[in-house]
Design a protein around this nucleic acid. Structure first.
Lengths: 240, 240
DNA sequence: TCAAACAATATCATACATTATTTACGCATT
DNA sequence: AATGCGTAAATAATGTATGATATTGTTTGA
C-alpha cells in the first residue's frame, strides 16, 4: 500500500465567494416582497428600486428578471415589473399544491429514511421549539413590530429538513418556491397577529409520526397544518 | 335603470403586444438549449451569445438571468453562465418528479372533468396523430436532420391539455418546467433515432382511460410512457 | 363626449468604464 | 526535467451613463 499524503487544508477557502450587486438586490427584493414591505400590486419602478438598494439600474433589472421566473414579481414587456397581487384563490392554490408536493416529498423521505435524516429533524425541531415568538400584542403601542426572523429562519429549516431526504432536487426546489409564496401571505395577513395555535405540538406530531415510520399519519399531520393556516387566513379575510 | 352604452370596439387592439429584445433572446436561447444546439456543460459567453442572436449584451444577460431561475442555465456570480450538464441521475430525477407532478395533475383533471376539457383532449390527440414524424433514417445521407417541430409542438400541446383541468396554476407551471428539462434529454440522446415505439397507441390509451373516468388506469398509462422513455434512454447510454 | 396630438415618464438598448477571474509566463525549488 | 509559486497580461463579467423608443397621462379641438 502506498503512503497517502493528506491534502493540506487552507485556513481560508481558496475562493472567497463574492456576491455581485445583482445578487444582493435579488435577495433584498425577495425578502421585502415576501415580508410584504413592498405591497402587492405595487409597481416596481427601476429607478426607485435602484435608489432604495443603492445600486445601478442594470443589477436591479437582472434581479427582477430572476424573480419573475420564480413568480415573485410579475413582468410585462415594455410595461415594467410589479409585485404580484394577492387573492384568496391564489393562496388556496398555493396551499393545495404545497400539500401535494410536500406530502409526496415527506412520503419519499420516510421511505428513504436514514439516521442522519432523523437526527437532522430532531435537531431542527428542538431548535425551533427553543426559539421564542415575540407577539405583537405584547409590545408597547407605537413600537415597531417585533423581529421574529430567528424563528422564521428555523421554521423554514425545519420544514426543509422534513422533506430533505426525498431524493429529488426538483421536488425540493418546487417546495421551496411554494414555501416562499405561502410565507408572503402569512406575513401580509398576520403581520399584526402571530398564530396563537400550538404549532409546537403540531410540529412534534409530524416528527413523532415520521420517526415512527408512519407515513400516512405524518403526511396528514403536515397537510393538516397547512390546511389550518388556510382556514385561519380565510377567517381573517372574511372578518375584515 | 340607466341605459348602458356599449363600449365601442376598435378594429385593431389598443396594445400591439410587442416583444423586447430580451424576450426574443430568452425564447431563442431556451429553444437552442432544449434542442441541444448549445451543448451541455458549454460556457455561455455573453458577447458570443449577443452576436449569435444579433442583440446587445444587456438583453442577453436579462434572458440568461430569467433562464437561470428555471434551471435551464447554470449561473455563478462573477464566473458566468453555462449550459447545465446532463447526467443519468438528473434525468431519473426529472422523470420521477414528472410522474408525480403530472400524475397528480391528471388525477385532478379527471376529477374536475368538463366537456370542454374532454373536447380539448380529443382534438389535441387527433391533431397529434395526424402529424407525421420524419425519421432521420429515411433521409438521404448528408442531409440535415428532419424538422419535426410541428409534431413537437402538438406533442407538448397534447400533454398540456391532459392536465390543463387540474385547477392549479402552480402545478401546471412545474409540469411545464419539467417537460422542458425532460425534452432536452430526448433531443440530445435521440437526435438521430426517433422513437419507433407506437406512441400513438400509448397516447390513445391515456385518452381512453381519461375519458372513461378511470383515474388509476389513465395515470398509470401516462407514467408508464415516461418510464419507458427513461428505459430507452438508459439503454441508449449503456449501449455506447 | 370623444378623439387626436402633445408632453411626461419609464422601459429598453447601446456604448463605455470598471473590476474580477482566468490564463500565461518566468523564476525558484525539488 | 518536473513541480510549485507568484506576478502580469488577457479575457470576460459586472456596473454606469446616455440615448432611443414605447407607454401613460394631459390637454386641446372638433
Amino acid at each position: 500500500m502506498t503512503t497517502r499524503t493528506i491534502a493540506p487544508r487552507r485556513a481560508t477557502p481558496r475562493r472567497v465567494e463574492k456576491e455581485t450587486a445583482a445578487t444582493t438586490v435579488y435577495h433584498a427584493l425577495k425578502r421585502d416582497i415576501v415580508h410584504g414591505v413592498l405591497e402587492p400590486g405595487h409597481k416596481l419602478l427601476i429607478d426607485q428600486i435602484a435608489e432604495r438598494y443603492s445600486a445601478g439600474t442594470n443589477p436591479v433589472r437582472e434581479a427582477l428578471n430572476r424573480l419573475s421566473s420564480e413568480r415573485l414579481v410579475d413582468r410585462e414587456d415594455l410595461r415594467g415589473f410589479f409585485v404580484p397581487p394577492i387573492s384568496l384563490d391564489d393562496f388556496r392554490d398555493i396551499v393545495r399544491t404545497r400539500c401535494w408536493v410536500e406530502g409526496k416529498a415527506l412520503e419519499e423521505s420516510i421511505r428513504n429514511r436514514t439516521e442522519a435524516w432523523e437526527d437532522a429533524i430532531i435537531l431542527a425541531n428542538h431548535r425551533l421549539q427553543n426559539t421564542p415568538i415575540h407577539y405583537y400584542e405584547h409590545t408597547e403601542p407605537g413600537m415597531p413590530p417585533p423581529d421574529n426572523s430567528p424563528w422564521e429562519e428555523r421554521h423554514r429549516t425545519f420544514h426543509r429538513a422534513l422533506i430533505a431526504n426525498c431524493g429529488s432536487r426538483h421536488l425540493l426546489r418546487f417546495a421551496d418556491e411554494l414555501m416562499l409564496l405561502g410565507e408572503r401571505y402569512r406575513f401580509i395577513s398576520m403581520a399584526n397577529s402571530y398564530p396563537r395555535r400550538r404549532s409546537v405540538d403540531e410540529h412534534q406530531a409530524i416528527v413523532d409520526a415520521a420517526l415512527a415510520g408512519d407515513t400516512k399519519r405524518a403526511v396528514e399531520a403536515l397537510q393538516g397544518q397547512y390546511q389550518l393556516t388556510l382556514k385561519i387566513y380565510e377567517e381573517t379575510m372574511s372578518g375584515e
